[in-house]
Nucleic acid binder design. Structure first.
Lengths: 108, 108
DNA sequence: ATTATATAACACCTTTTGGTTTTATTTCAA
DNA sequence: TTGAAATAAAACCAAAAGGTGTTATATAAT
């Protein structure tokens, strides 16, 4: 039981470069939609859609604050990604082991 | 200069569950197209397309072997993902720090 | 009260994605 | 050499993705 995943999982969410950039912006601090949108050449509506999708995958949360909506980063879902990646880490380890071996064999 | 990325980067490549499953299969061992396809309910042609895309992002390599084409996993491009993830690791660390604090405060 | 701000909710458009089927081409095997 | 196996290549299709613009609606500020 790994979560229903609904249709928009983390993998989907981070596939788009604009969305990754949004996450980056929210990593610095919480920001309202209009501020986020100001960083992109696309329409505010388009940014809102990206935020909705990121919301679905729980990577961001929005709270209403006066007349603006503040968005906040939530990295917890990235754990799934980390775990997924971990499975493939042994391949790198092998490579590192091999690299280590080569380095150790190198003459002065 | 992080690579031209061509249009199909790693993030895109792993966004699709079928493709992730293909990677999983190739992690066990090299396999020919038909064998890979046998694990999915979709057509062999569809699987081939996924393999092409994975090839573009260098996550797999195919070599012709007799009349079949063997595919091989290459995890190196996943490094980019790992680095990307690493940026967000500090948030987890913060959470762990907070958790640690809570646990330490807990009475016997 | 009125107006400007910030967002939400629609309707709509174009390209990409993920899939199909059909038609070659190459290679092994009988 | 004739056929079956394995893939490649092409044309096609529906749905989703990423974008647009327009029209509400709620909130602040004057």
């Amino acid at each position: 039981m790994t979560e229903p995943a609904g249709k928009h999982d983390v993998f989907q969410a981070i596939a788009d470069p604009t969305r990754r950039e949004i996450l980056r912006l929210l990593a610095e601090k919480d920001r309202p939609i209009s501020e986020i949108a100001s960083y992109f050449p696309i329409s505010r509506t388009a940014v809102t859609k990206h935020l909705h999708l990121l919301s679905e995958s729980k990577l961001v949360e929005g709270r209403k604050e006066g007349r603006q909506k503040m968005y906040h980063l939530n990295t917890e879902p990235l754990m799934e990604l980390k775990e997924w990646l971990h499975y493939y880490e042994r391949f790198w380890n092998n490579k590192l082991t091999r690299l280590q071996f080569i380095v150790e064999q190198e003459p002065e």
